[in-house]
């Protein structure tokens, strides 16, 4: 008999594509998609359950359908997506707690895959060039999405201790980018004038949206325990990335960076929170050895190629506008 997979956060782009991808997998019999709002389009092969993971309804859904695999993609990155920072925090932290509580109560659950972020490492001048999964952050994040993700990972570790029979995989992704996905970083690179921090040129790493989905699928298939960094090979410098977009840029002192940045585009397009500014100042690199050797995932896109696939989309849009 095939597996029954529950995916959270399916009404957003990556969650929806993930559910469809898993539904097409011959090993998977049923995919249940969960989100607070209904998806814009029906997701092929997925039965959608409109449930708020913040309340215990989720446990009932899981118990009744005999879910054996849970893919948690319900952590959201920017307050705009949630309609305010406090709602965002509630969905991220309380939502995860409720989901884990439900997993703990559901004996059929065998594996849990959590989509986390490399921003849990923070960003700063004392960072090593590349973070391995066992390194403690040198500049622990104290705001927003990064802080939420640190808390989510803490609860996930707690769950892994309480249910040692469940294999728990946490994937820490570099900035996801690609032809379709919309994130704070794609918003940043879509600003009409891109601000950069005076005197710094951070190293950025990207993961292509297809690689993100494939790596989650690999984790679902192999159910390898542990935490893994997932990123495309190589790094791009911010200055390099900006020039490749062909857009204009402006160099701004660090102190004025977020003020200037916010004034350059519509509110909420890009993220200029303190954590984001630190990242755009100092950058970050991930060591992906464990992703290859233990998780057994090989990204198809380098950081460079992933970024260029994003640039390709904005160029296409520009040419359409002109035509």
């Amino acid at each position: 008999m095939g597996r029954t997979v529950l995916v959270t956060g399916v009404s957003r782009y990556l969650g929806g594509r993930m559910a469809a991808l898993l539904a097409a997998d011959p090993e998977v019999a049923t995919v249940i998609g969960v989100d607070v709002v209904a998806p814009e389009r029906e997701i092929p092969g997925t039965s959608f359950v409109r449930a708020d993971i913040r309340n215990p309804v989720i446990a009932k859904v899981m118990g009744e359908s005999g879910v054996d695999t849970v893919v948690h993609m319900g952590v959201i990155a920017t307050p705009k997506q949630a309609g305010g920072r406090s709602t965002m925090k509630e969905i991220n932290v309380i939502g995860t707690m409720q989901l884990l509580a439900a997993c703990q109560r559901t004996p059929s659950v065998r594996s849990l895959v959590v989509k986390s972020t490399a921003s849990v490492y923070g960003s700063g001048p004392k960072d090593p060039a590349k973070f391995t999964e066992d390194m403690e952050p040198k500049h622990a994040p104290s705001h927003g999405w990064a802080k939420d993700s640190v808390e989510v990972e803490t609860y996930v570790r707690g769950f892994a201790r309480r249910r040692p029979d469940v294999s728990v995989t946490t994937l820490r992704f570099a900035n996801v980018i690609g032809p379709r996905v919309q994130t704070a970083i794609t918003g940043y690179f879509s600003l009409p004038v891109i601000p950069t921090v005076l005197g710094f040129d951070p190293r950025l790493q990207f993961v292509h949206e297809d690689d993100l989905l494939e790596s989650i699928r690999t984790a679902v298939r192999t159910a390898r325990r542990g935490t893994f960094n997932v990123a495309g090979d190589g790094v791009l410098l911010l200055s390099q990335a900006v020039r490749r977009t062909g857009r204009r840029w402006i160099i701004v002192p660090r102190l004025m960076f977020s003020t200037v940045g916010r004034s350059l585009g519509p509110a909420g397009l890009a993220d200029f929170s303190p954590e984001a500014v630190r990242y755009l100042t100092y950058g970050r690199g991930l060591d992906t050895t464990a992703m290859r050797t233990v998780l057994g995932f090989e990204p198809a896109w380098t950081s460079d190629a992933a970024f260029m696939s994003f640039v390709g989309r904005s160029e296409a849009r520009v040419s359409v506008d002109v035509a």
Partner: peptide
């Protein structure tokens, strides 16, 4: 690596923070 400009040039010249890893 904290100092503007110096940090940028040092990274581009191939230097990195003095740490074991």
């Amino acid at each position: 690596f904290q100092t503007p400009v110096v940090a940028d040039i040092a990274r581009k010249a191939g230097h990195t923070l003095a740490c074991h890893p």
